[in-house]
Amino acid sequence: MLTIKDVEKVASLARLKLTDKEKEMFLTQLDNILSYIEKLNEIKTDDVLEFKMEGFDNQNFMRPDEVKNYNFHEDLMKNAPSTDGKFLKVKKVIE
């Protein structure tokens, strides 16, 4: 059983701010989902290996370390909510 405190902690880890009403709603829904998920405990998995995707044999995918020019710096900056033209602007980090 989850508590409101658990929901608050998870929301803070996930960088979400919830209203009291939302906390209640998510508490009920997440609790519901987690109790359904409990089903997994029916299976013994002590000797089971974790999943590995087929077709990937634990190899590294390397490519030559070459400089390529992408030239979409301006387009990228156009999507930013706040810039000084050259850098992204955010609120002061250190007071």
Binding site: V10, A11, R15, L16, F26, L30
Partner: peptide, 18 residues
């Protein structure tokens, strides 16, 4: 994030974070 995401997205982010 709280204003930008809808409830289903928030629910899954929280389930995953948990």
């Amino acid at each position: 994030r709280s204003i930008g995401f809808g409830n289903e997205v928030k629910r899954r982010i929280m389930l995953g974070t948990f």
